[in-house]
């Protein structure tokens, strides 16, 4: 797997060249329960790090998903509309939300790597 970073709000970002693939962590999906809907931004929209980029809904809750990095939305996951369960089945794989064109790679430095995130999650339970 390529380089993956995490935020304290449980978003992940996977870097693939100058493209940042964004979604919610496997831990986040397990906390949310069955995901029933994902509201995604429009392609072409520019999002800033920390700003609301999507909304993920379970039966009883709706949570904002914040952009872990800044960039322009170049693609949204077309499968989530018909099959939002993909977020539960494979949050960090086929359950991705959006792809951004990375605006400022330096922003990645402030995020946790997989080991740091795992340690962070440990502290929550």
């Amino acid at each position: 797997m390529s380089d993956v970073r995490y935020t304290k709000d449980h978003e992940y970002v996977r870097i693939d060249g100058d493209i940042a693939v964004i979604g919610i962590s496997d831990y986040a999906q397990s906390q949310l329960g069955d995901v029933v809907f994902v509201e995604l931004p429009e392609v072409g929209k520019t999002v800033k790090q920390g700003a609301e980029a999507a909304v993920v809904e379970s039966v009883k809750a709706a949570s904002e998903v914040y952009a872990p990095v800044s960039g322009e939305v170049v693609e949204i996951n077309p499968d989530l509309e018909a099959a939002p369960g993909a977020v539960n089945e494979d949050a960090e794989g086929k359950g991705w939300f959006v792809k951004l064109k990375l605006a400022n790679p330096a922003e990645l430095d402030g995020l946790m790597d997989a080991a740091a995130y795992a340690a962070f999650v440990e502290t929550l339970s």
């Binding site: 069955d34 029933v36 809907f37 809904e57 039966v59 939002p84 369960g85």
Partner: peptide, 9 residues
């Protein structure tokens, strides 16, 4: 119990 996930998805 009713399947609320199915109803919402």
């Amino acid at each position: 119990r009713l399947d609320e996930t199915r109803a919402a998805r």
